[in-house]
Simulated assay, not measured.
Amino acid sequence: MKAKNNKAGLLFQQPLKPLVNPDHSLVQLSEVVNWSRFEEKFGSLYSPDSGRPAKPIRLMVGLQYLKYTFNLSDEAIVAGWVENPYWQYFCGERYFQHEPPIESFLKNQ
Rank of each mutant, 00 (worst) to 15 (best):
M1K: 09
K2R: 08
A3D: 09
A3G: 12
K4G: 01
K4M: 06
K4Y: 05
N5H: 00
A8L: 01
A8T: 00
G9L: 06
L10E: 05
L10G: 06
L10S: 11
L11P: 07
L11W: 02
F12E: 05
F12T: 01
Q14A: 03
P15H: 09
L16N: 04
L16A: 09
K17D: 07
P18N: 08
L19T: 05
L19S: 03
V20S: 02
D23T: 09
D23K: 11
D23E: 15
H24K: 00
S25E: 15
S25P: 10
L26R: 05
Q28K: 10
L29Y: 11
S30V: 12
E31H: 02
V33Y: 06
V33C: 04
N34R: 07
W35T: 04
S36L: 03
S36M: 10
R37E: 12
F38E: 09
F38L: 09
F38A: 02
E39W: 08
K41R: 12
K41D: 13
G43P: 06
G43E: 02
S44Y: 12
S44L: 14
L45K: 10
Y46A: 05
D49A: 13
S50F: 13
G51K: 08
P53F: 01
A54L: 09
A54G: 14
A54D: 14
K55S: 14
K55F: 13
I57S: 13
R58K: 03
M60C: 11
M60K: 02
V61I: 03
G62M: 00
L63E: 12
Y65W: 04
L66C: 04
K67Q: 10
T69M: 15
F70S: 13
N71F: 07
N71S: 07
L72G: 07
S73M: 10
E75A: 05
E75I: 11
E75G: 13
A76T: 02
I77F: 04
V78W: 04
A79D: 10
G80T: 01
W81G: 02
V82N: 04
E83F: 07
N84D: 07
N84S: 11
P85D: 01
Y86R: 07
Q88E: 14
Y89L: 08
Y89H: 00
F90A: 00
F90P: 03
G92Q: 04
Y95W: 10
Q97K: 05
H98V: 09
E99L: 14
E99T: 13
P100D: 08
P101H: 11
I102D: 12
E103W: 13
F105H: 15
L106P: 01
L106M: 08
Q109E: 13
